[in-house]
Amino acid sequence: MTVIERPLVETVRRPLGGGRRLAMPQWIAAAPFFLYVGIFLLLPTAIVVSGAFIDSAGLSLANFATMNQRFVINAFLNSVLLSATSAIIGAVFGALLAYAVATGNPNGAFRRLVSSACGVLAQFGGVTLAFAFIATIGGAGFITLWLQQHGMNIYANGVWLYQLRGLVLVYIYFQIPLMVLVFLPALDGIRPQWREATESLGGGTWHYWRYVAGPLLAPAFLGGTLLLFANAFSAYATAAALVNQGSIIASLLIANTLTSEVGLANPGIASAFALVMVVIVAVVMVLYTLLQQRTARWLQ
């Protein structure tokens, strides 16, 4: 009997250095990511935060003293008003649309179409959206002209499209779809059995909404409204495309303070305004996350 020269099973040669521990620490592979995010996300944020507290004389709160001026207060109040109005209207109509979708066939093509459309429209905004409304109800817009031919004038009391009221209308266009996206999962969590249970206990439609569905959906609805508020509060492009001059809302004020064409640009003051905005948005988003977690508790 001869000795078998070849091994019975052919194995791949041990790779060079394969079995050894890497000489470099393992986190080194994640270092490029942290470095990149550090430079292009954390550094700009740090510049805004530190810039807000520095003026020509060094460390100071002088930049925030500018907040006390009438036009600054007005811009922030207008922003709050615009965001709250568009969030509440958007949340109500978005919830109605979500309910209309949720009561249909859950696997139907129509539902798929509506939720896809909402996914697209929630991202719609900026210059294109502003132009869409100018083409619709601007001075030479489709609806404006059509109404004029029928003896009606939507601008009898002045053109309001380029003012706060106009912005509310335009913002609602992206607020409703966003509300549908965040509210639909909550509606899907509602079981028809709960309604049957209410009825077998003698409750009517009113009791069902008041004592069963209402309290269950309230956190999701409120959370959605808060998300919509943050969404509108930080929006800039749509307003910038629609409103050509003036700083009627906070985001336009920040932009104009940053790049003033008349030489009044002041990065420190712009940073202070930006810091106030980011703090407001952050508070709203934290509240939203808390409400979202509360919703998730019974949704699963």
Binding site: P44, T45, A46, V48, S234, L258, A274, V281, A282
Partner: peptide
Amino acid sequence: TIPAIVLVAGLAP
């Protein structure tokens, strides 16, 4: 959570 308008203030420099 960081609005683009805020980010741009820090990106300018």
